[in-house]
């Protein structure tokens, strides 16, 4: 399975980006291949409205089944849940830390009530 993680720079050693729609990068981890792919999200950083929807489209296009980030907005939540992507929020530290925390089951799955961030 593929897992998407928001990142401030395109490398797993770098910090998780606390935003989703406006994250600088999306890092996609492929569990089977143990490989990382980085996706530029600068369009989202500079977008004003609909950044969450655009970023969700990228996650879906790359066939990730889970997303790990800091906080998520309502439109992104609606988009990702409609696509069946599981959302884990409250991630901090490096991208690798966040992945580890997720694999160990330490991250919480987001519900509608958590979808208040996003600005």
């Amino acid at each position: 399975m593929k897992i998407a993680i928001t990142a401030q720079n395109p490398s797993p050693e770098n910090q998780v980006d606390p935003h989703f729609g406006r994250a600088a990068w999306l890092m996609i981890y492929d569990q089977e291949k143990n490989e990382w792919e980085s996706i530029d999200n600068s369009a989202g950083v500079n977008a004003a409205r609909g950044a969450g929807i655009q970023a969700a489209q990228k996650v879906v296009d790359h066939k990730a089944e889970a997303l790990i980030t800091g906080a998520i907005g309502p439109n992104a939540f609606k988009s990702l849940s409609a696509a069946g992507v599981k959302i884990y929020h409250g991630a901090t530290g490096t991208v690798e830390d966040a992945l580890q925390a997720y694999l160990e089951g330490q991250l919480r799955e987001a519900t509608t009530n958590d979808a208040k961030g996003g600005v």
Partner: peptide, 14 residues
């Protein structure tokens, strides 16, 4: 205006 999101099996409207 990002009012439509096309997913593989559905279209979500905003």
């Amino acid at each position: 205006f990002n009012a439509l999101l096309c997913l593989p099996e559905k279209v979500v409207t905003f």
